[in-house]
């Protein structure tokens, strides 16, 4: 039950990112201000490309979080002191959202102005989704592996 709730929490963070942060905050408030698409490309066409790759980034991030959870909970058991910590392993999983972010940067449609904002948002979406989902819902034995988790995760 506890594990199902944690995994549900991770997926909820991803949904929150995609349907609230990407779909509302970024698409409706930030990107219209920052992006001027290339000639012949409508803004909604460019936005479809951005949304697709943002979705890939968030999905990769939540997949990394879930893999981290499965690894920490059922594979990397703490049977002695040397098994504990695993912050390095947590950092290794960051490469998955980074890879998704790189793909997003390469494949998102180019714009005349404001691509820096799109790149930044892609990076924020993927990395922050991984960080927040693991910050809040890492397996108990490694719950403070994400940096600053011991300051945030109090009481569960």
């Amino acid at each position: 039950m506890k594990h199902a709730l944690n995994l549900f929490g991770m997926i909820s963070v991803a949904f929150l990112f995609y349907f609230v942060i990407v779909s509302i905050l970024e698409e409706q408030y930030i990107l219209p201000q920052a992006i001027i698409p290339l000639a012949g490309v409508r803004f909604d066409q460019w936005l479809n490309s951005f949304r697709y790759w943002a979705g890939i980034g968030v999905a990769t991030a939540v997949s990394a979080s879930i893999l981290w959870y499965i690894l920490g909970q059922w594979i990397l058991r703490v049977n002695n002191l040397s098994d504990s910590g695993k912050r390095g392993t947590w950092f290794l999983f960051v490469f998955l959202p980074i890879a998704a972010n790189a793909a997003a940067i390469i494949f998102t449609r180019q714009a005349q102005v404001g691509m820096w904002a799109a790149y930044t948002l892609h990076a924020v979406n993927a990395l922050l989704c991984y960080y927040i989902s693991t910050l809040l819902f890492s397996p108990p034995s490694y719950k403070y592996a994400p940096p600053l988790a011991s300051l945030i995760r109090v009481g569960w």
């Binding site: 002695n80 910590g85 912050r87 108990p140 719950k143 403070y144």
Partner: peptide
């Protein structure tokens, strides 16, 4: 004796207390 005390000694000497959430 074999796990928790050894962890506490390691934390006392090397820090890295994130290794043991129960320590926090």
């Amino acid at each position: 004796l074999n796990v928790f005390l050894k962890t506490l000694i390691s934390i006392r000497e090397k820090g890295k207390n994130y290794r043991a959430p129960w320590y926090i």
